[in-house]
Design a binder for these strands. Structure first.
Lengths: 232, 232
DNA sequence: AATAAAATATGTTTTTTAACACATTTTTTC
DNA sequence: GAAAAAATGTGTTAAAAAACATATTTTATT
């Protein structure tokens, strides 16, 4: 658990959300924020743990997940730089409702719960923007529930691949997903066993929809994947 | 579609949420709210439709659901009087993300989107309370995703029965659920086919966990149901 | 009250997916 | 760089749940 200090752009230059802070609030926030580094697969917060911080991802990828029955975990969302997490629990002043871990080596800003809720209370625009973010997360969660419960394996995996594309985009070649996930994570996103994720991925490759080389996945037939995802 | 006017307590006497409005805001809200009556099974709003109102349930029960593949519908939540709905879409200024229909004859207050968002913008405490509500809904949605994807049929049905108990409680006899739902709704809550909901309900009755008489369901072994729900 | 429609109940078959097993490859660790 | 551990790939079997079928009961409609 190395926790070196490092330099990053100030909070208010990261995203539209933090721009809404006043000069005074910026100073206040800067005092209550610190850089933390996490190693690949390191746990950032755990489901059920008392909430103490909210985080802003600076570098790397983070998975938000819940453990279900018999250690099976469901990935709820994957984060990219400047996404925030842990904010729901801070607002509700409840324990975290899910766990977060680093997909790869990560850097984050960590802000104390007190600071975050204070900013929400003092700045209406900021509050409204956080609210909008939560409204988006709620809609996504409800859509995801139906996707995961009603679609078949192929549909669920296609959905996950398209989600990765939407979230992280392509490498410079314009075809290879800019995401290197182990098959187990793909399975945990798609509510299936690892063996079935591997098998279905092979099928997609055989059908020429994707090309697979280790964890590098090329999307060859996006429209066909969309079709499979839509049908179930 | 009968829409008779009827008298109900003013908004601010309904729940803690609306108490936070100032005198002026109460007058403003009262002007933008109207009573609407819905018949059993009548659609209140539909997934994908442009959001125009948020609602406060006054009398009856409402189901919030999403249609998935092949007309299968997933019930996301069931509402009781003074619960609000349609607010997420209004805040995000998006189309509704789910549909709402009356489980039984219902009365609601209907408030225009403009009024609701205006109140949120003008009243910080009110805004924070709405935010708390959304934080709760988000946590419930994420828990529900894992429940519905990872538990087996018996676990999912037990879960739904316990949810009905928690949400609507018992009749005067202290044993019979104060909820008369068709088996199809039970199935749609629990992510299973109607036939399987009926079958599993019969099994539970045979095992002495519940007693069934038409749509009246008595909970006999709450702890055992909790156990089944926990195990999956 | 008669009829039609919808809901409930239950048995059987088929499909889907998890579980298990094991070989092979890749990645970590010392 | 060798050994150990983890991840990938694939076949087989078992379990879970949907689909289908049909009878019966209840509820709605005229």
């Amino acid at each position: 658990m190395k926790r070196r200090e490092e330099h990053f752009a100030p909070l208010w230059e990261l995203s539209a959300l933090w721009e809404t802070l006043t000069e005074e609030e910026r100073r206040y926030a800067a005092e209550h924020v610190e850089v933390v580094l996490y190693d690949k697969n390191e746990l950032i917060h755990e489901d059920g743990e008392e909430s103490e911080y909210m985080w802003i991802l600076l570098r790397g990828k983070v998975r938000i997940f819940k453990e279900g029955i018999g250690q099976r975990q469901q990935i709820i969302r994957l984060l990219k730089p400047f996404d925030i997490f842990g904010y729901r629990a801070c607002i509700a002043d409840e324990p975290y409702n899910s766990s977060a871990s680093a997909v790869e080596n990560c850097a984050v800003y960590r802000m104390s719960k007190e600071c975050f809720t204070q900013l929400i209370k003092s700045n209406g625009t900021f509050c409204y923007n956080v609210m909008l973010m939560m409204a988006t997360d709620l809609a996504i969660s409800e859509i995801q529930t139906v996707n995961l419960t009603q679609k078949h394996i192929r549909g669920r995996l296609a959905e996950s691949l398209l989600l990765l594309l939407k979230n992280y985009g392509y490498e410079e070649d314009g075809r290879t997903l800019a995401t290197l996930l182990p098959r187990e994570d793909l399975a945990n996103m798609s509510n299936m066993t690892t063996a079935n994720a591997i098998r279905t991925l092979s099928q997609f490759a055989q059908e020429g929809l994707i090309a697979v080389e280790g964890r590098h996945i090329q999307i060859l037939e996006e429209n066909e994947l969309k079709h499979i995802s839509r049908l179930g």
